[in-house]
């Protein structure tokens, strides 16, 4: 496979992931904010106050982790090590988002801090899951070409 074809394939995979998973998962928040803006001025607390972003972040990380776990290593130790590292990082992010979600529900006074944290964790999980998806695609290309790093 030529390098340009490989790059095109990866770009398409990345774009589909960004459009239909990352941006698509924010659609309910956009619709909700549009609906609320008809009646009053909308704040972040109104949209993200219930910890919805934590749930979305958890889902993104879980989906990318599932993709990572589906990689066929074919005795490629390097791909295997990187995959294990990425899965471990995904689990860490999932633990953080889950605990933060529980904090959001249990401690309403800390909502300002938690909303900032929700934005950060959403950015982290979106970025990290995109990297994981790209890595999965490369691993598949390497396996299909019979190349071991």
């Amino acid at each position: 496979m030529e390098h340009n074809k490989m790059r095109k394939k990866i770009w398409i995979k990345g774009l589909i992931w960004l459009l239909f998973s990352v941006i698509g998962s924010l659609l309910p928040f956009f619709i909700n904010s549009s609906y609320l803006s008809l009646e009053k001025k909308v704040f972040f607390v109104d949209i993200f106050g219930e910890g919805g972003l934590f749930l979305v972040s958890t889902t993104l990380c879980l989906v990318s982790m599932g993709e990572l776990m589906g990689i066929d290593y074919k005795d490629n130790i390097r791909i295997k090590s990187i995959t294990i590292l990425f899965v471990f990082c995904s689990i860490l992010i999932i633990i953080f988002t889950t605990i933060s979600y529980i904090f959001t529900l249990q401690h309403p006074l800390d909502k300002e801090i938690l909303i900032k944290l929700a934005h950060w964790l959403f950015f982290v999980s979106a970025f990290f899951s995109t990297l994981s998806i790209l890595f999965t695609e490369w691993a598949e290309i390497l396996n299909s070409q019979g190349i071991s790093l």
Binding site: M1, F86, F96, V124, L131, I147
Partner: peptide
């Protein structure tokens, strides 16, 4: 904040290096 920042930096570097090596091999 600290742990996730480290995760982001390390994973970005790993993916970038992997991409360069894949490109080189191909």
């Amino acid at each position: 904040y600290v742990v996730t920042s480290i995760i982001l930096v390390v994973s970005s570097i790993i993916v970038f290096i992997t991409y360069r090596e894949v490109k080189k091999v191909l």
